[in-house]
Design a binder for these strands. Structure first.
Length: 475
RNA sequence: GGCCACGUGGCGGAGUGGUUACGCAACGGUCUGCAAAACCGUGUACUCCGGUUCAAUUCCGGACGUGGCCUCCA
């Protein structure tokens, strides 16, 4: 069965053919580490994690390289550093901000069930030429100047967009059209208003590196060109990111990379996840609907309860990755219910992941990651398992969920208390014993105790007819 | 103003030129010490107007609506 992927550049869905199946290569634009990641940031992390898992499943774990950068040089980071650590030297303050934020980001996406990428390079490690000879930004910029694709003007190095005949192909923007729009800053030193900065000078309270063009820092797009080449080579398989990055970020990455390396393409498939709204409105701090991953996991700010990483992940993948998502309490509620049903079936049959993924499920996923259709197959498996006590269906359900990055125990973790789980299991054990003795008074007492803890019990039977009790957090 | 998506039942959300998506909610039932859950069954749909076609929710054109990008942004 073929894997088919939608390519933003060619606007079509086609069979994925890696350049080298023994070394499938994917680059995804990662976070700028200046503040807590919001739920919108979680989307590309989850979407491309699923693609990563799918590729590993097809080509083998050792044959897929997933690079996701960490942007740790950015004006927002500078601002945050000056605000939060005014007494520290700038570099130290910046390091404090980026290290803390990076740790937060990792904790958040870990909780969402995302695997760590193969490599997570930090931009600041790729500004200057490196001892290991991996591609760096200064060298890349030098190559662009040499090849006549960039020029120096007023202390900046600018990319000469007119030097690239098909600039704008990804976003469908032509240079002459852009002149019409008044939004692009017209600077006298630019040859064309669409030209963008590769290198800019730094003042004393901005981070800077010594370069052939003076002390300065890289522009917004060059870091990804450098790090992608450093780990994946000049042409690779998949480049991903959010829809909003198509222009200017990815457009400019393509321009830089192709012109510096003189290649026909930078990546063979450009993939973009859709945007997310919150309760029907664009997420913004001014509307007060700005919600971070951490808040969803740990606070009751959204919907009066907190949500497990599995529920957040499920809510994210029950919509196709290219469609917009309206992030609502109702959607999380529904996700929680559906997931609980799957979990109960898996537990009831004692099914463990590691078995075979259901073929129909895999087929849906292979069709440009049609996760909603794939999940519908899980409903079918769930039904088959329960209707006909079909062990195999339950095993396939567990294995398929696992390919989606969802394991049953992710759902069960009670927030903020690691002993919670064990405690509940003990109480359930006592209650099961009481029920076996027909001591229903005691049995009901324990059930009430658990209910007071916010835990609802569900009695069932396993395939041998033995009583099995599962539980979930009360809604 | 330019570019790009999208508009499916009460809600979420796939897909298809003629045949059940799927789930949540609702209603009915089976089962269980009770409750809950689970399982089974039932109903409701394809924004509007033209066109192509034997046949359109599905293709083409238009209208209206929603969202995104064009500036840091997943």
């Amino acid at each position: 069965m073929d894997l088919r992927l939608y390519d933003t550049l060619t606007k079509d869905k086609r069979v994925f053919a890696p350049i080298d199946p023994s070394k499938v290569r994917m680059y995804v634009c990662g976070p700028t580490v200046y503040d807590f990641a919001h739920i919108g940031n979680a989307r590309p992390a989850i979407v491309f994690d699923i693609l990563f898992r799918l590729l590993r499943h097809r080509y083998g774990e050792a044959h897929v390289t997933y690079v996701r950068n960490i942007t740790d040089v950015d004006d927002k980071i500078n601002d945050r550093a000056l605000r939060d650590f005014p007494h520290l030297p700038l570099n130290e303050a910046i390091r404090k901000v980026t290290e803390k934020t990076e740790a937060q980001f990792h904790a958040d996406v870990d909780a969402l069930g995302c695997l760590r990428p193969t490599v997570e390079p930090r931009a600041t490690d790729f500004v200057l030429p490196r001892a290991d000879g991996k591609t760096d930004m200064v060298t890349l910029i030098g190559q662009l100047i040499e090849r006549g694709h960039a020029y120096v003007a007023e202390g900046e190095v600018l990319f000469d967009t007119q030097s690239m005949p098909d600039y704008g192909k990804l976003s469908g923007r032509r240079l002459d059209e852009q002149q019409a729009g008044a939004r692009i800053a017209v600077d006298a030193h630019k040859k064309h208003p669409g030209d963008f900065v590769l290198w800019k000078g730094s003042s004393d309270n901005e981070p800077g590196w010594d370069s052939p063009w003076g002390r300065g820092r890289p522009g917004w797009h060059i870091e990804c060109s450098a790090m992608a080449a450093a780990y994946l080579g000049t042409t690779f398989d998949i480049h991903g990111g959010g829809l909003d990055l198509i222009f200017p970020h990815h457009e400019n990455e393509i321009a830089q990379s192709r012109c510096a390396h003189d290649t026909a393409v930078m990546a063979n498939y450009w993939m973009h996840n859709g945007f997310l709204q919150v309760e029907g409105e664009k997420m913004s701090k001014s509307l007060g609907n700005f919600v971070t991953i951490r808040e969803l996991l740990e606070s009751k700010r959204f919907g009066g309860r907190n949500w497990s990483g599995a529920v957040l992940r499920f809510a994210m993948v029950k919509t196709h990755y290219r469609s917009p998502i309206d992030w609502t309490v109702d959607a999380l509620d529904e996700s929680s219910k559906r997931l609980t049903r799957f979990r109960q079936t898996v537990e009831k049959f004692g099914a463990r992941a590691g078995g075979d993924v259901a073929p129909a499920f895999l087929e849906r996923l292979a069709d440009d990651m049609n996760t909603p259709a794939a999940i519908a197959e899980l409903d079918g498996l769930n039904r088959r398992a329960n209707e006909a006590s079909d062990q195999d269906a339950a095993r396939q359900l567990a294995a398929s969920l696992s390919l989606l990055g969802i394991s049953p125990d992710m759902e069960q973790r009670a927030p903020g208390n690691e002993l919670f789980d064990d405690n509940i299991r003990q109480l359930i054990g006592s209650r099961t014993a009481a029920r076996a003795n027909k001591d229903f008074k005691e049995s009901d007492r324990i059930r009430d105790v658990l209910l007071a803890m916010g835990v609802v019990l569900k009695d069932g039977k396993d395939t041998d007819g033995k009583p099995v009790t599962t539980w979930e957090i009360a809604r």
